[in-house]
Design a protein around this nucleic acid. Structure first.
Length: 570
RNA sequence: CGGGCCGUAGCGCAGUUUGGUAGCGCACUUGACUGGGGGUCAAGUGGUCGCAGGUUCGAAUCCUGUCGGCCCGACCA
């Protein structure tokens, strides 16, 4: 492709709307332009990248037994009513009405659509398993779109749905997808980690997320280097510490005037934060709930939500004061039962001896408080936010922390949708059974952004070779070099290399800057200095390495380099 | 939805307090010089000042309404 016949509108100035590096660079490198909040046009370079990612995804889906289809974007409300999600989805769903007054939505996901399609077609276990996928636009009216295409309202996603006759089949489908996702991300040249994840509202018990590692990623990942345990911090758990062996002491009430926070109390009483019991109050529609965590721990609200399984919110201090007569900052578990408050506690509370907590009286705390003797707990559960340094649940080694962008998420759904929609097949034993389903999503547009987030520097993007819009860029520095550059261009084209030829009448500085910005992996510079010696200058964008190659060998060397770096590529 | 802020040329912004008929940088066009990391000079093109209504001799500027966007938070298969 000749630069002069192509369209790459690079920007020198940084548009003010962008925060993330990847967002800024996608605007500056001429990849995307915004049409509305969270709605983007993809320009030629971005389109080439998306096509490459899509091709890799398709190859790996097909290898894993996937069958490609294309499902509607516009979906009738009726199927969403069947699973109850028309109401559950709320404002996040784009809704529309046709001229006859019938309700539709723009599909945020396709479980309902695919289940509806198959339930009318697949009648027998002989037709199973089926792994159906599509690559389609999805629509979610995000409450706050941000970070460019990273959290957009319109985005491209690959979603595959598996239909099996039993759990064993589901497990096979799930494993096939897990491996396919590892292959996809590896082939795209991305550093990533698969982590155990919370399955959220979609249901099911097993779920993994695929995280592209990047410091600016929204997700926090905890992992163990010793045994490979890795989990999203929403889900991560840690091993319990041993119970302290100290003898129980008498409860003592001490004055702690003006010392309300954990930091203040530990400093004032000269005790470690892990000796404190932190008491938080939550409300549901029907009751107050006290949640106990250790002073050095934070509550994981997602775990709490999964345990409560109903709407809940942090109780406002005024309500705690008025309805329970308790001063926030000096609350503790002692005597809460008598006030009719349900008490939940993190497992770590069990191991505490002679703890410190609020006395439920303004400006007083209690020392040497002990479980059973001084207070009781209704339910123990894992409620704390795991953090770096915690002992791994599997092997006890300290957990590490890193951040990532969630690009893929796979779920075992079971019969949640098939049962709700009465999607059944006749099994070998003659019994009508609901499909055992799984769903597996990977964000195509988000992967592009994550790749940039992971691979950039102050000069621009550094595309991994397998998903780069072009493999090679040729810079002809001046008029005298154009002929030699043209010849290399023709040779590389003939050899099937994806090459961008910067034939613009621009100053060298402009060409260097643009080449770095758009991040083509291999840069060939044809300039007066090297050309006089019959050579071409070569620079590797990702590593910064540079070489000089004789003019006559350029094509062969380029081909060898590409082959070495990306054997699966052209 | 709550809090903070912003809509002026394709992009980034000034001008609004104190009303007088719109400006700077980048980009773009033309020419000359220049030619290894966004070069210099000169001459240009481009704006219903988000939209609607009002006040006024006169509104980017004041008032009312409305639409859109950004940041923080709640939320997020």
């Amino acid at each position: 492709m000749r630069y002069t016949q192509y369209y790459i509108p690079t920007l020198r100035e940084i548009p003010s709307e962008a925060e993330l590096d990847s967002h800024k660079l996608m605007l500056r490198a001429g990849l995307i332009r915004k049409a509305a909040a969270g709605i983007y046009s993809f320009l030629p370079l971005a389109h080439r990248v998306l096509k490459k990612i899509i091709r890799i995804v398709e190859e790996e889906m097909d290898r894993a037994g996937g069958i490609q289809v294309l499902l509607p974007i516009v979906q009738p409300a009726e199927i969403w009513h069947q699973t109850g999600r028309w109401n559950v989805y709320g404002d996040e769903m784009f809704r529309l009405r046709d001229r006859h007054g019938r309700d539709f939505c723009l599909g945020p996901t396709h479980e309902e659509m695919i289940t509806t399609l198959l339930k009318n077609e697949v009648r027998s276990y002989r037709d199973l398993p089926l792994r159906i996928y599509q690559i389609q636009n999805k629509y979610r009216d995000e409450i706050r779109p941000r970070f460019g295409v990273m959290r957009a309202r319109e985005f491209i996603m690959k979603d595959l749905y598996s239909f099996d006759r039993d759990e064993e089949g589901l497990n096979r489908s799930y494993e096939a997808m897990y491996e396919a996702y590892e292959r996809i991300l590896t082939r795209c040249g991305l550093k990533f980690r698969a982590v155990e994840a919370d399955s959220g509202a979609i249901g099911g018990d097993v779920s993994h997320e695929f995280m592209v590692l990047a410091p600016a990623g929204e997700a926090v990942i905890l992992y163990c280097e010793a045994c490979n345990y890795a989990a999203n911090n929403e889900k991560a758990t840690a091993a319990l510490p041993a119970t302290a062996g100290e003898p129980l002491l008498e409860v003592e009430k001490v004055a702690t005037p003006g010392q309300a926070t954990v930091a203040e109390v530990t400093a004032f009483l000269q005790v470690a934060p892990e000796k404190l019991i932190k008491t938080l109050f939550y409300k549901t529609e029907t009751e107050f709930i006290a949640v106990l965590v250790r002073g050095d721990d934070d509550l994981n609200e997602i775990k709490l939500g999964n345990l409560l399984n109903q709407p809940y919110w942090l109780a406002p201090p005024e309500e705690i004061a008025e309805q329970l007569g308790l001063p926030v900052g000096y609350v503790g578990p002692v005597g809460l039962k008598e006030k009719g408050v349900k008490v939940l506690a993190d497992h770590r509370i069990k191991a505490m001896k002679n703890a410190v907590c609020g006395a439920n009286a303004q400006d007083f705390h209690l020392l040497n408080v002990n479980l059973e003797r001084d207070f009781t707990v209704d339910t123990f559960a894992d409620l704390r936010l795991a953090k770096a340094g915690d002992p791994c649940v599997h092997c006890g080694q300290p957990l590490q922390e890193t951040r990532g962008v969630e690009v893929g998420h796979i779920f075992k759904l079971g019969t949640k949708y098939s049962a709700a929609m009465n999607a059944t097949f006749r099994d070998e034993d003659g019994i009508e059974k609901p499909f055992i389903m799984g769903c597996y999503g990977i964000g195509i547009t988000r992967m592009m952004a994550a790749a940039i987030e992971q691979n950039n520097d102050e000069d621009g993007i550094k595309w991994p070779l397998p998903i780069a819009p072009f493999q090679v860029i040729i810079l002809a520095l001046g008029e005298e070099q154009k002929a030699a550059a043209e010849q290399i261009y023709q040779e590389l084209m003939a050899a099937g290399v994806e090459v961008l030829f910067d034939d613009r009448d621009e100053r060298p500085g402009v060409k260097f800057k643009d080449a770095d910005l758009i991040g083509i992996p291999l840069r060939l510079t044809v300039g007066p200095k090297s050309l006089a010696q019959g050579e071409v200058e070569v620079k590797v964008r990702m590593t910064g390495e540079d070489f000089r190659w004789p003019l006559a060998e350029v094509t062969a060397r380029v081909l060898a380099y590409l082959k070495e770096q990306d054997p699966a590529g052209v």
